[in-house]
Structures are given as structure tokens and as C-alpha cells.
Design a binder for these strands. Sequence first.
DNA 1: TTCATTATTAACTTATTGGTAAAATAAAAG
DNA 2: CTTTTATTTTACCAATAAGTTAATAATGAA
Lengths: 126, 126
Amino acid sequence: MPPDNDRLTATFSALADPTRRAILARLTLGETAVGKLAEPFDMSLPAISKHLKVLERAGLIARGHDAQRRPCRLAAEPLHEVSDWVATYRRFWEQRLDGLEAYLRETQATPPARTRKKRTNARKSR
Amino acid sequence: MPPDNDRLTATFSALADPTRRAILARLTLGETAVGKLAEPFDMSLPAISKHLKVLERAGLIARGHDAQRRPCRLAAEPLHEVSDWVATYRRFWEQRLDGLEAYLRETQATPPARTRKKRTNARKSR
DNA sequence: TTCATTATTAACTTATTGGTAAAATAAAAG
DNA sequence: CTTTTATTTTACCAATAAGTTAATAATGAA
């Protein structure tokens, strides 16, 4: 059972938003309070608070307590899982398309239709 | 300009679904027609068709033509970008929590409150 | 031409997401 | 106690996502 499907889903979902990725990037500079995290964004505090909740539920951040502040810090373990998952595809992007297969792929992303027939119906415009 | 924000967003969104990840996994075995791809899933053809469109728009698959079949194949380049993105966080999960900082983190996920004050209000249960 | 196969599009439903403004809560400070 | 600061919760809305069934399209075969 690799990483756990639901965990991966939660992680990818959390990462599928530029605001949340920017928050993670910011947290690489160190623990940061919500207000500070919010500053760079043209967005209300509650919106940021929601994003933080998503990140927290994905295990990508953890939060502390400091008076009325709730400092966030990066929790990178789920990214480790992403790294492992994506690594299983490495050979598919490293594979420097070479040989006949590469030739075929490059010259005919769509093969020129083996035995292409007449095409009786004109295609409707879309 | 790292990878491109929108591209990363599209990629992570596409990956944030277990059906789509399973489709990608299947495609590591080779080019496959839509019907074949659909078989393992308890889901209608149109649903799979939609998933494929999401993957295609994210650049994670490419499609050919073979008679009435539309064979799909893996296109891993966006995963390369994911790999690069996630690699920038590697030190945060490799950082084998050691020394005082690690001690603090492990024994007190929440620091015992520097100058913790009385705590006048009992916290409501949730 | 007609039929069978393969896949997509259309129309619709329901759930989730991302945002808002306003109210509530928590803790510190006056 | 009252006020200020920091953050979350609630209630709401619009847009998107994921699924369905029914209809349409494209191709090959009879």
C-alpha cells in the first residue's frame, strides 16, 4: 500500500491552489503568524484562515500557540510522499525519446490515419 | 520564473483525484484506449472521458487516433515540474529533527507558552 | 445502407470550493 | 471591567467539479 490514497488526494488538493503554495513557500522562512501570512495577499483574513485549515488537514502545516497568535510552521512529510509518488514516473520524463518510437511520436503526435477513409460527414463547427 | 504557476495548479488539480492517478498508473503500461482505461472503474464512460479531458488539459496525457478509438498515452513532463517544485522542500523533510529544536518539537508540539498567563476563561468543549 | 462499436457532448444534479462580511472568541493591555 | 489585537466561526453566494442519463458523432463492418 503506497503512501495512502486519501492522504495523497488531500495533499494534491491542498497544493492545487497558488495561494496555499505561496503560504508554504513563505513558511520555509520560518514559523509565521496568520496575520503576517495574510499580508501579501489581496484577500480577507477569513479566506486565509480557511486556506490554513486546508493545509493543516493535509498535514502540510502545524500550528502553535503564542498568546492570541496561532503561529504556523511547515510540516513537509506529505511532500515527501508526493516526492516518492512522482518519482515512480521519473523514467517517463527522463526517457529522452530516441529511436523509432521517438521518431514516430515526434512526427505524428496523431498518426496520419492508417487507412483514413473518405470522411462522409462534414464536421460541425464548435 | 519557476515552472509557471497556472501549469502547476492545473497539474496538482489533475493529480488530486484517485481515479485520474489510477489512469496515469495504468498508462505506464502503455498506450490504452478509453474503453480499456474505463474497465477497472465503477463509473460511466462519460465520467472517464471527463477525467481524460482534465488530464489532457494538464498535459499529463496525449491522445492519438486509431479508427474509432482514441488511444491515450502518458505525457510525464508536468510531473517533472512537480518533481522540481517539491524538491525545493526536500530539506524540510530530510531535516532529521535533532538537537534542541528537535527536542522541543517532539515534546511540545505546542510550546508550553512562554510566559503563559492565568487562562481566565475555561475553554468550551467542542 | 444499415448496424455495431467507441467515444464525446449536452443537459442536468449535487457537493465542494473559494471568497465575502459580520459576529464571536481568546488573550493581552489599559 | 473595557478595549485592542489576532484569529476563527457563521452564514451566505457564485463558480467549479464530479457524477448521471440520453443523444450525437465517427468509424468500420455486414
